[in-house]
Amino acid sequence: MNRRNVLRAQVAVGAAAALGGAAGVAAAAQPSPAGKPAGPLRVHVVLYDGVEELDFAAPYEVFCAARFFTDREVDVRYVSTSGPGVVRAAYGTRVTVEHGWDPRAADILLVPGGGYARRDSPGVWAEIRSGVLPKQLAAAARSGLTVSAVCTGTMLLAAAGLTTNRPCTTHHKARPDLEKQGGLLKNGRVVDDGDLVTAGGITSGLDLALWLVRRELGAEAATGVEAMLEYEARGTVWTPPCAGRR
């Protein structure tokens, strides 16, 4: 464990203690919810040129922090359809992607947004015009995989045909486009339709990831991450009526 992880672990224990003394400390290593797989939770965050920094960094941080509040292994990695290399994000941040495209090795595929207002620049529109990422997303769908998107990342799912006649949401300026493409718009901050989970708004990546942590690793893990990050999930999570598993 490197120095950064040591420091984070110390913060995690402090956060757990703040949640309720000895009981809170015990919450830092809660087992996975009943019925959930015992193997690692594998999260692949998709990167491409022009991706919004907050869209991918916030969920990445949440899932990584969740490791301290569950006994289930959490494997979080950046992936790209172009394979390992360097991605230049919307505000110029350069991110090294060490892993290639391998959605069959993922439990959650998370697609950030970015650049939707700049049609001639790198970002969502460029990826839609290229067609490579939408095609790969369409081919990735399978039983056992949750495909999720932050903000205008949902428009990449729409281009892949994954939101047609499905409850979903996106950034408020892209909502008319999403509806035209067959998405069933819902007004939740996060819209959970089982194997399709979307969130609307740039900062909604925090709420999407916290919801998925809660769903996959349990409420104790989610509240532990909230305490560690000093952030409380906001907005409504829309789920289908009579969604008994939630």
Rank of each mutant, 00 (worst) to 15 (best):
V13H: 09
S80E: 02
R88D: 09
G200C: 09
T163M: 09
V237A: 07
V45D: 02
A139T: 06
T169L: 10
M155V: 07
L137I: 09
W211G: 01
R4N: 10
C242R: 14
L145D: 03
A16Y: 00
A27P: 02
V43T: 12
T146D: 06
A22Q: 14
V132C: 05
L19Q: 15
F63E: 03
F63C: 07
R119C: 04
N2M: 09
D177Y: 10
V6L: 15
T152N: 03
R234D: 13
G35C: 09
V74N: 00
W211Y: 13
A105R: 12
R246G: 03
V45Y: 00
G85V: 08
C64L: 15
V150F: 00
N187R: 10
R8N: 08
T81M: 07
R245N: 10
F63I: 07
T93F: 12
R142T: 14
R234S: 15
A29Y: 07
S143L: 12
R72P: 04
R94Y: 13
D49W: 00
L212S: 12
R246P: 04
F56V: 08
R142M: 08
L229F: 10
L145V: 02
R245Q: 14
G144S: 06
G20S: 11
H99P: 03
V111G: 02
A57T: 15
